[in-house]
Every structure is written in C-alpha cells, then in structure tokens.
Simulated scan of single mutants.
Amino acid sequence: MDFLQFLSWTCIVFTVGMFSTGLTDLKKMRASQSSDNVQFLPFLTTCLNNLGWFYYGMLKKDATLVIVNSIGASLQSLYILTYWHYTKNRRHVSTQTLTGIAVLCAGWLYFSVILGQGDTRLAQLGLVCSVFTISMYLSPLTDLVEIIRGGSVERLSFPLTVATMLTSTSWTLYGLQLQDFYIMVPNMPGILTSLIRFYLFWKFASTNQDKPSYKTLQI
C-alpha cells in the first residue's frame, strides 16, 4: 500500500467517524422524542458542504472524495429527517431546508450549465467548497471565546476534538500529496481550532477534579 492510498483510507475512516458523531444527537432526539437542545443548522450546512465536495470529487474523478461525501450527505440527510420528525417548529425547519435546496440547485445550474466543462469550472467549484469549509471550521471560534471567559470546557466534546484533529490532518496531507490546494488549505483551520481546543482542555483540566470538565461523546 503506497502512502497516497494509506492517506485515502485514513481520510475515509476518520471523516466517516466524525460524521457519525451526529448519531449522539439522533439517539438523544429518539430518547426524548424532542429536538430540544439539538442544533439543526449544522446538519444542513454540513450536508450542503458534503454535496459540494461530492460534485468536486465527481468532476475530478477522486474516489476518496466521492465515497466520503456520499456517506456524509446520507448521514446528514438522516439527521435532518430525524430532526424534522421530532421538532415542534417544522415550518421553520422546512423553510431552511428548502432554502438550502434552492442554493444547491442554483449552484448546480451555475457550475453545470453556465460555466460548462473545463478547468475553470473545477477551479471555481474548488474555491467555493474551500471557502465554505473554512467558514465551518472557524464558526465555533465565538464559542471558544465564551469558554475562555467562563473558564470551563463543559460545552466541548473531547472525542469530537480528537476526531476533528485526525480528520483535518489526514485531509491536509492528502491534499498536499495530490498538490490540490483546494483540499489542503481549507482543512488547515481545522487543525488550528483543534489545537486551540486541546489547549483549553489542558488549561481548564483542573477546574473540577471530581468529574470530567468536558462533554463526553456517547453513541
């Protein structure tokens, strides 16, 4: 097995593992018969992100991207349907979902019909997917500021932080090996934010010695 194939498998395993952490929220919703205390928007944005990278992988004929993001999109769709089933505000969820579908259709129309085939389409799609992924990795920074102010990491999941670190690192190395900066660059912020989380876990580890100072992950 060469290094690129090894990186491909690590990307698949780590990323699918990270996507599977949403099963915790699914289990919580089924147990409580409610979607309270579960956020819907991350499911939707991650699904859109998966579909964008799936299309990029199809155009580039990259099996790793296609496999990972087809599984990711399927899982996120399951989470979305489960959330819609248990939420009390189905109209709001439906509106957000339809808006996401409209954006997805508009994007497909632009990249498939208006741009047509060629390197320009692949480059512009890669750029859009990269920017979207970077924004998703950087969006929790506001929460990290609140955690620093409060001096507690109870809102953070240590296993999820480890999964994010492994996933971001494997994709960064995979993109570097392929000389594809659209894959490599957007995953570097994931490494940065994971390192910040690890530092916070270390800094506030002694806050409470009787119980874990972070949120565990249960599936």
Results as ranks from 00 to 15, higher is better:
137 Y>M: 14
23 L>K: 12
138 L>M: 12
146 E>P: 02
171 W>T: 08
197 R>Q: 15
115 L>P: 10
14 F>N: 01
160 L>Q: 15
18 M>T: 14
161 T>E: 04
109 L>I: 07
45 T>F: 14
143 D>G: 05
41 L>P: 02
20 S>F: 05
179 Q>W: 05
1 M>S: 06
32 S>P: 00
206 S>W: 07
33 Q>D: 14
41 L>I: 11
148 I>T: 12
40 F>E: 05
96 Q>S: 14
97 T>C: 12
18 M>H: 12
185 V>G: 08
137 Y>K: 03
153 V>T: 15
137 Y>S: 06
60 K>E: 15
119 D>C: 08
173 L>M: 12
202 W>G: 09
179 Q>T: 01
7 L>F: 10
142 T>R: 06
50 N>R: 03
163 A>I: 07
40 F>W: 05
26 L>P: 04
56 Y>E: 06
1 M>R: 07
66 V>D: 04
98 L>K: 13
185 V>Y: 12
98 L>R: 07
15 T>I: 02
170 S>F: 02
89 N>V: 02
177 Q>T: 10
167 T>F: 00
205 A>Q: 15
166 L>P: 04
98 L>E: 07
199 Y>D: 02
104 L>I: 06
9 W>G: 08
148 I>Y: 15
114 I>A: 05
172 T>A: 13
102 A>I: 07
167 T>R: 00
210 D>L: 15
6 F>G: 00
30 R>S: 08
122 L>Q: 11
18 M>G: 12
74 S>Y: 02
71 I>N: 11
74 S>Q: 00
164 T>P: 01
39 Q>N: 11
127 L>T: 13
96 Q>V: 03
80 I>M: 10
19 F>H: 02
117 Q>K: 13
110 Y>N: 00
44 L>G: 05
182 Y>E: 03
62 D>A: 01
37 N>E: 10
130 S>R: 04
18 M>L: 14
3 F>M: 13
117 Q>G: 04
30 R>F: 06
79 Y>W: 01
43 F>K: 05
83 Y>R: 08
103 V>D: 01
59 L>M: 09
168 S>C: 03
113 V>P: 06
179 Q>S: 02
64 T>I: 05
209 Q>N: 08
219 I>Y: 10
36 D>T: 12
79 Y>E: 01
218 Q>Y: 08
219 I>H: 07
8 S>L: 01
209 Q>H: 09
189 P>R: 11
121 R>P: 05
21 T>P: 00
160 L>G: 13
129 C>S: 01
134 I>K: 10
1 M>Q: 01
136 M>Q: 09
198 F>L: 11
67 I>D: 06
203 K>M: 12
45 T>H: 04
